[in-house]
């Protein structure tokens, strides 16, 4: 199996096929990060495409011997940050707020499906991670879903290791509170 470095060299030489192999190798990891970060499959698809286009445009400047995976995650993290600062995000957030309002309204009319939906562990985790500040959710997703070490997360996010530890500590504390509260609510509703 060709290494990342071999594939990058082939891409620099103009190989479409090597680009295809390298993209397929990392596509799902990057998509999963962005999906968990944005909680929206359409946004995740579009942002993943942006990440890979940025990757291919910048690949001539990628230094040989560098860690490609960390470099790609850095692009993904920056892409998500840009998205949260963008007008597109504000529009989506407004729609989500409306949808949330509509869901809550529907739930007051018909409480049973709402409680049932609330019970879903996936939804709880998704919602809890979504509510975290951006820097904390970044650190948590990279550590627990992508197995990056604290040193690597620091490289990817451009922060120092102590800051990453602090973000993880604060983020985990908040998640513990939020998920613990949800579990408590579940027990009460049962």
């Amino acid at each position: 199996m060709p290494t990342d470095e071999q594939l990058i060299q082939e891409i620099k030489n103009g190989s479409q096929a090597a680009m295809e192999v390298l993209t397929k190798r990392y596509y799902k990891q990057i998509y999963a990060y962005i999906y968990r970060k944005t909680s929206n499959s359409h946004t995740a698809y579009d942002l993943t495409q942006d990440v890979f286009i940025k990757m291919i445009r910048s690949i001539p400047s990628f230094a040989s011997g560098g860690n490609f995976s960390s470099w790609l995650y850095t692009i993904a993290v920056n892409c998500c940050r840009d998205y949260y600062r963008s007008a597109a995000y504000r529009q989506t957030a407004a729609t989500s707020q409306y949808e949330e309002y509509a869901t809550q309204r529907a739930s007051s009319e018909d409480a049973v499906p709402y409680i049932f939906e609330k019970k879903e562990a996936r939804k709880q985790l998704k919602e809890a991670i979504r509510q975290l500040p951006e820097a904390q959710s970044e650190a948590i997703l990279l550590k627990y879903y992508h197995d990056l070490k604290i040193r690597e997360i620091a490289d990817v996010t451009g922060a120092n290791e102590n800051t990453i530890k602090a973000r993880l500590r604060q983020g985990l504390g908040k998640l513990k509170t939020m998920l613990g509260r949800d579990q408590h609510e579940q027990k009460e509703s049962n």
Partner: peptide
């Protein structure tokens, strides 16, 4: 992505 791959 194809258009962004350098010409061989």
């Amino acid at each position: 992505m194809r258009p962004y791959v350098a010409e061989p």
